[in-house]
């Protein structure tokens, strides 16, 4: 068969805030870079994100958090994926995240945090370097 592997990325927007511009910009850039992006809209709980990541068999989950709840939401997604045996799914994210919090998130298993103003080209480059098609 004609084999063709593509990166599949879930872009999710957890938390209560309604600012999805950043998430949409990232989703579009990833698509323009040839990736398949599953976009689920606003107000996703960590449970929804984990279930979606499993059903969609994504290679990475990109979270956009503007509400300040990143210290809770990021680790909850990582933990949920581990519990489901999907610990090889790369978790990265962006949003308004103070520099002081970044080491703690890294420790919790978040591979990369992009702060506001990061050029999308840089995000794509990082994904290309760090995410591989699973399976």
């Amino acid at each position: 068969m004609a084999e063709e592997r593509k990166l599949r990325i879930l872009v999710a927007k957890p938390g209560l805030d309604g600012h999805d511009r950043g998430a949409k910009v990232v989703a579009r850039s990833l698509r323009d870079a040839g990736m398949e992006v599953i976009y689920t809209g606003l107000h996703q709980t960590p449970e929804m994100i984990v279930a979606t990541a499993i059903q969609e068999d994504v290679d990475a989950v990109g979270l956009s958090i503007m509400s300040g709840a990143h210290n809770v939401l990021f680790p909850a997604v990582v933990k949920g994926l581990r519990e489901q045996g999907a610990d090889d799914v790369v978790v990265f994210g962006g949003g308004i995240i103070p520099d002081d919090d970044i080491p703690r998130l890294a420790e919790a298993g978040v591979s990369q945090v992009f702060t506001p103003g990061t050029p999308t080209g840089q995000i794509i480059e990082w994904v290309r370097q760090n995410v591989r098609p699973r399976g």
Binding site: K6, A27, R28, L30, R31, D32, A33, G34, M35, E36, V37, I38, Y39, T40, G41, Q44, T45, E47, M48, A51, T52, Q55
Partner: peptide
């Protein structure tokens, strides 16, 4: 590439 957004309308059933 593609943006797959059909789930937006069905996420109530995600879990």
């Amino acid at each position: 590439g593609a943006i797959l957004g059909d789930r937006i309308r069905m996420q109530e059933h995600a879990t």
